[in-house]
């Protein structure tokens, strides 16, 4: 099979793009791929970022057509100066604040990358996150309390309630 771009060299790169259910197959040679700046396995010039920017650019028109309210005002991060266009192009944030700046546009992207997930459930830094860890622990105990009340295990529930009180006291005292 010859490269569909130059029709001269054999196609060594085969990939399929699916956009909105429409399938497009590509068969190109390495040279044309390089010229187009497309993916070339092994050469390291292809990375997840190229794919990502595809996702991000594709997000825009879709969300615009779905909800017409203009959320165009967030086009640049105050902290680092990265514009949304640049972010979409390089597929990477410029600083931690970008997460807040571009928040309204990120959820669909995170969902797509992380299998539908949008919130962190893993480790919390011990020092700077100590308050959060404590707060999460209290939430867990409160859930346990509800459970116990439903199951009418009042004696156990009273114990848990006291534990929660103690934790809350410590929490307020500590912060």
């Amino acid at each position: 099979m010859y490269c569909q771009e130059c029709q001269q060299r054999p196609a060594t790169l085969h990939f399929t793009k699916i956009i909105n259910g429409k399938k497009n197959e590509f068969h190109i040679c390495e040279q044309c791929a390089k010229e187009k700046g497309d993916l070339i396995p092994g050469s390291n010039s292809f990375s997840i970022h190229n794919l990502l920017s595809g996702l991000l650019n594709f997000d825009q028109p879709l969300s615009d057509s779905n909800n017409p309210q203009p959320d165009k005002q967030v086009t640049q991060c105050d902290q680092c100066g990265l514009s949304y266009t640049k972010f979409a192009k390089i597929g990477r944030f410029g600083c931690p604040d970008c997460y807040k700046t571009f928040e309204s546009k990120l959820t669909p992207m995170f969902k797509r990358i992380h299998g539908g997930n949008t919130s962190h459930t893993g480790k919390i830094p011990k020092r700077i996150g100590s308050e959060l860890i404590e707060r999460k622990k209290i939430d867990q105990f409160k859930q346990k309390l509800q459970q116990l009340i439903i199951q009418e295990e009042f004696e156990e529930a009273a114990k848990v309630r006291d534990q929660i009180r103690m934790m809350e006291k410590r929490f307020e005292g500590g912060s």
């Binding site: 997840i48 970022h49 990502l52 597929g91 990477r92 944030f93 410029g94 931690p96 997460y99 990120l106 992207m109 995170f110 990358i113 949008t118 919130s119 962190h120 893993g122 480790k123 919390i124 830094p125 700077i128 996150g129 959060l132």
Partner: peptide, 12 residues
């Protein structure tokens, strides 16, 4: 770090 997104990284 933020509660919602966890450890913030350059690449999403």
């Amino acid at each position: 770090f933020d509660e919602q997104h966890g450890y913030l990284t350059s690449c999403p």
